[in-house]
């Protein structure tokens, strides 16, 4: 005997009204992702309260002014005008003319960006071969290598800077070591308290951090693509240039941003190993909020710095056509 299904057949159908459900359930059933946001809401709230609100407050503050002990809350562009005020008196920095009345912040910003760029380049040059080594050469004990790379990321930044101070100091390890070996007979003074010391220290501090994203993007590359490239006649070097490098671009670009953005605002490293010549924009922000007690101007400097960083990052992503690279990485 066969019971043939009768779609919509009258025999099977009974007048059934949909069971009444509370509105909340109905909405959640209709839009299941609302549950996701419900779960995330405490975290989002915390981030709003502690990230977005403070940054907005900082932004607002940059339009106020400091009168010795109290803050004048009338809206004004005076802080920005102060930073960018033109003047006939031209200050030169590395031959670059700055026709500003108070050139210190702009010069420090330019200098910080230049130093950060240098750090980023050094970091990528050091980290990429290491990531490549770990992705393609290390076969056994991969976890050991990963952990060896990871430890420095999580161990005190301050201590690593401190270590470099000991290394590079006038009475430091390098000088005493070289003198001890008889290579030099008096300490090298140029080691510490200059931009180079800051760049070395920052590069060392960030390089471990940079390996992981590059490593992940190299590790993700389908090995058969590399075999295909060889099969199609690429020499190892060509294969690297045509296949490996483009496919690891998303990780490399992420790394560039991950290193560049935070180092522009770094202030611990310049404060410890930079001396007066190696100070960066972060140091002047710290001074403005601290000893100089001019929070509004400090806020304005912060805003200018963030805006500059954002502009540079956008320009960079546009130049490398990041959308296309990312879309390619998805496949």
């Amino acid at each position: 005997m066969s019971d043939i299904a009768e779609p919509g057949g009258a025999a099977m159908r009974e007048p059934s009204s949909p069971p009444a459900k509370p509105l909340r359930t109905r909405i959640l059933q209709r839009f299941p992702w609302l549950r996701g946001y419900l779960l995330m809401s405490p975290t989002i709230a915390v981030m709003l309260a502690m990230l977005i609100v403070p940054v907005v407050a900082l932004f607002v503050r940059s339009f106020w002014t400091q009168n010795v002990f109290e803050i004048d809350t009338t809206f004004t562009l005076r802080n920005y005008a102060y930073i960018f005020e033109l003047s006939d008196r031209i200050t030169y920095w590395f031959g670059i003319p700055f026709p500003l009345a108070n050139p210190v912040y702009v010069i420090l910003l330019v200098k910080s960006i230049a130093m950060s760029l240098a750090v980023t380049v050094v970091v990528i040059l050091l980290a990429y071969p290491m990531a490549y080594f770990m992705a393609f050469r290390v076969k056994r004990h991969k976890m050991l290598w990963l952990i060896l790379i990871t430890i420095p990321i999580w161990t005190s930044y301050l201590l690593r800077v401190f270590a470099w101070k000991i290394m590079l100091g006038f009475n430091g390890v390098i000088n005493s070591g070289l003198m001890n070996l008889g290579i030099i007979d008096k300490p090298l003074e140029f080691l510490l308290y200059n931009p180079i010391a800051v760049i070395i220290t920052l590069a060392h501090a960030w390089v471990a951090f940079a390996i992981l994203p590059i490593y992940v993007s190299l590790e993700k590359i389908d090995r058969s693509l590399l075999e295909a490239a060889t099969d199609l006649g690429d020499k190892p070097w060509e294969r690297f240039w045509h296949v490996t490098l483009p496919l690891s671009a998303p990780g490399t670009i992420a790394t560039i941003l991950l290193v560049f953005i935070p180092t522009v605002g770094d202030y611990v490293t310049p404060a410890l190993v930079g001396g007066s010549g190696g100070s960066m924009i972060g140091n002047s922000i710290q001074l403005l909020f601290g000893r100089q007690n001019d929070a509004p101007l400090g806020s304005a400097v912060s805003v200018v710095m963030m805006a500059t960083i954002t502009a540079i990052v956008c320009l960079f992503l546009w130049l490398v056509d990041y959308r296309k690279i990312r879309a390619r990485g998805m496949n």
């Binding site: 940054v55 922000i285 806020s299």
Partner: peptide
């Protein structure tokens, strides 16, 4: 974001 910005904000 540089931690100094987070800090001052």
């Amino acid at each position: 974001v540089p931690s100094i910005i987070l800090a001052v904000a």
